[in-house]
Simulated scan of single mutants.
Amino acid sequence: MKAKPILPASIPGAVPARATAAAAALVTVLAGLGVRSAVDGDVAKYAGDALYTVLIHTLVVLVAPRVRPLTAAGAALAFSWAVELAQLTGVPAELSRRSALARLVLGSTFNAPDLLWYVAGAGLAWAVHSRLRTGRGPGRP
């Protein structure tokens, strides 16, 4: 007898996790746009840094819906740090001059405090993901 391939949709929890991750990604982008339109300066910048890592976390869950919260947060943090550290090379700055998308994803200038704010975003994403994964939402024990 031939084994059936396991498709992501057939993995228990994969479809709801993907739908939740897609909704969370949209909410994260809207939150980032909202912060940018409501405040200026460091508050907007550092909130954007944290939300960048939250967005990466949601994209990790979208691709791998059964991923553990700590693994997704670690991957999002590692990616965020890698992008920030890559800014030391000047490559992201050059790409950002040529493409608005590259500027949004890669940034252009290294800023050491951003590394801390990525940790804050990863921590927030981990906490929300953990809470959702255990099924303990607001008002639940």
Rank of each mutant, 00 (worst) to 15 (best):
A112C: 06
G34T: 09
L62A: 08
A64T: 11
G41P: 04
S80R: 04
V27E: 09
W81C: 01
G137W: 15
V54S: 05
V105W: 07
A72E: 05
S99K: 12
A19F: 12
L77T: 03
A102G: 06
S96R: 09
A17I: 04
V61L: 06
L101E: 10
T28P: 00
P69W: 05
W126Y: 14
T28C: 12
E84V: 06
A112D: 01
W81F: 12
T109A: 11
P113F: 07
P92Y: 01
L26F: 14
H57C: 02
W81V: 09
R66F: 02
A73G: 00
A22Q: 00
P92M: 06
P69E: 10
I6K: 09
P69N: 09
S108W: 02
R140H: 15
D114Q: 01
A125R: 05
P113H: 10
V105P: 10
A78C: 02
V43K: 07
V15K: 06
G48E: 05
V83I: 14
A25N: 06
P113E: 02
P138K: 14
P65R: 05
G32M: 04
P138R: 15
A23K: 08
L85R: 07
T109M: 10
A102Q: 04
V91R: 00
L85K: 01
G48P: 04
P65D: 01
S10G: 09
V67R: 03
D49T: 11
S108M: 01
V39F: 14
A17K: 01
R18D: 04
R18P: 02
L106I: 07
S96Q: 02
F110C: 08
I56P: 05
V67T: 12
W81K: 10
L7G: 07
L106S: 10
K2Q: 15
G41E: 11
I6G: 07
E84R: 08
A102W: 01
P92D: 07
T53Y: 08
D40T: 15
